[in-house]
């Protein structure tokens, strides 16, 4: 095989196509012809660089999510969005309520609530220390409700 013949078959040699006999004959020629060996090496290098440039193979995740969702192969993307929206919406609501409470507390200082808390704490300490007699004991929620209602009414009547 001469230089011209071997170079004409560079495509096949580079792509590892056609028969082994052809590759063997080209290999034999390249072994004795440094010019062709260099030429083959340069052609292959250029080809590899071109391939690297053309073949961008990383898939776009968002694109494939949409493609597979539209073909019913994945759960639809909007469902995930709805979940995200509802979750972030709930967070926003909670944050809004907290801010509103803080603002209201600043706007209307809650002295009566603080007083009630102090009275309850003091009473609890006195009860735990045995300084206050136990006025009512029951395991029934209904009885406790009735007792508290009666207590409230009696206090209102007294006032």
């Amino acid at each position: 095989m001469n230089c011209r013949e071997s170079r004409q078959h560079w495509n096949l040699y580079h792509d590892s196509e056609k028969d082994a006999g052809l590759h063997f004959r080209i290999g034999e020629h390249l072994a004795v012809c440094p010019q062709c060996a260099e030429w083959f090496q340069q052609q292959s290098r250029l080809e590899y660089m071109l391939v690297e440039n053309i073949a961008v193979r990383r898939p776009t995740a968002e694109l494939w999510d949409r493609v597979l969702a539209q073909t019913q192969l994945l759960k639809p993307v909007p469902a995930r969005r709805w979940f995200l929206f509802s979750f972030s919406g709930a967070l926003a609501c909670a944050a809004g309520i907290l801010i509103a409470i803080v603002l209201l507390r600043h706007a209307f200082p809650s002295q009566p609530i603080s007083d009630l808390t102090a009275i309850t704490t003091t009473f609890h300490h006195r009860l735990a220390g045995g300084d206050e007699p136990l006025q009512f004991r029951s395991r029934s929620d209904l009885e406790v409700d009735n007792y508290l209602l009666w207590k409230t009414w009696s206090m209102q009547l007294t006032n």
């Binding site: 961008v56 193979r57 990383r58 898939p59 776009t60 694109l63 494939w64 019913q72 192969l73």
Partner: peptide, 18 residues
């Protein structure tokens, strides 16, 4: 069927897109 299909498809998404 869809699981098998996706298993085959996944490694080829990049080349198909390109």
């Amino acid at each position: 069927k869809s699981e098998r299909f996706l298993r085959h498809l996944e490694p080829l998404q990049g080349p198909l897109e390109a």
